[in-house]
């Protein structure tokens, strides 16, 4: 099993990002994803900054992948994705079909990110022919679904032709919108957001009127309220998953990474879940009684 650090999904000040990657360089993660995938207004780091970090990490023996934006609306955003695809040095993670389009034309291998809608073997076969070398599956898919897909891949002779990566730890990216929910939470429009996401390095928690944590608002992205944590499911990934992805959080990311690398099982906290992997509602931890709603203390 290999371990990766996903792209930072939150908006952090440049110094915090650099500090994070200083630590990442010394961590046990073998694969590191870099880049802004959520909002094109988040420009604490420019492409040249990311490339500089990428080079430094590569020098430390890390495999570096540049992750690209997910929801592309403006021509300027498209142009930026194109620049990343044409970087000529590092592998790229495509999170929109526009990136796949550039990469297939450049005839360079790529990673299919979790925001691409890949739900079956025949779509994988198609993307393989266009250069996909690794697939990080949609976060809502389960272990059983992954098994089914991979056994079908086996049947058509493509199972060993790509790697499988699994989003295994961190708040799950669940949805993308034209609207910025963080700005809305401050009663601002997106055009006048004043980059307020910078004030919320963990996003903002949206909970029900009964205090149940439901979602984390991260700009135009809506994340799971509970943190996904498959630490106790590592064994069930054997034979299915090649790379475990740890998604950076504002605190304790490297402790979590260490726990995964060393298979240190721990019971999930009241704010963690592993529901999707077990093909139940994402917010329901496997084994928990559905009617026993977990309430914020």
């Amino acid at each position: 099993m290999q371990y990766s650090l996903g792209p930072i999904l939150y908006f952090w000040p440049k110094a915090q990002v650099e500090q994070f990657y200083d630590k990442a360089a010394q961590s046990e993660a073998e694969i590191i994803y870099l880049g802004e995938t959520v909002c094109s207004k988040r420009r604490q780091l420019k492409m040249s900054d990311y490339i500089a970090i990428a080079k430094a990490l590569a020098d430390r023996g890390k495999e570096v992948i540049l992750s690209t934006m997910t929801l592309l609306e403006a021509p300027s955003e498209l142009a930026q994705v194109r620049k990343y695809c044409e970087n000529g040095e590092f592998l790229v993670e495509a999170n929109d079909m526009a990136a796949v389009n550039y990469l297939r034309k450049l005839k360079v291998p790529f990673v299919a990110g979790p925001a691409l809608n890949i739900y079956n073997h025949r779509t994988l076969d198609l993307l393989l022919k266009q250069g996909m070398k690794r697939w990080c599956m949609p976060v809502e898919l389960s272990k059983d679904k992954l098994s089914e897909i991979l056994s079908k891949c086996d049947a058509i002779g493509i199972k060993d032709r790509f790697e499988v990566e699994l989003f295994s730890y961190g708040h799950l990216p669940l949805a993308y919108s034209a609207r910025c929910f963080t700005a809305r939470s401050e009663n601002r429009a997106k055009d006048n957001c004043e980059l307020c996401c910078l004030n919320y390095p963990r996003g903002r928690v949206a909970s029900s009127q009964e205090g149940q944590t439901l979602f984390v608002l991260n700009g135009i992205q809506t994340m799971s309220g509970y943190r996904y944590n498959l630490i106790n499911d590592l064994k069930t990934m054997e034979g299915l998953v090649d790379i475990v992805r740890i998604s950076p959080e504002a605190a304790n990311t490297f402790e979590a990474l260490t726990n995964f690398v060393h298979s240190n099982s721990t019971s999930l906290t009241a704010y963690e879940t592993n529901g999707y992997w077990h093909q139940i509602a994402g917010l329901t931890p496997f084994g928990a009684n559905l009617t026993h709603a977990r309430v914020m203390s």
């Binding site: 949805a175 799971s224 509602a281 994402g282």
Partner: peptide
């Protein structure tokens, strides 16, 4: 096509 909120709940 890019919203998993329903399966999350």
């Amino acid at each position: 096509g890019r919203c998993h909120l329903s399966s999350y709940l």
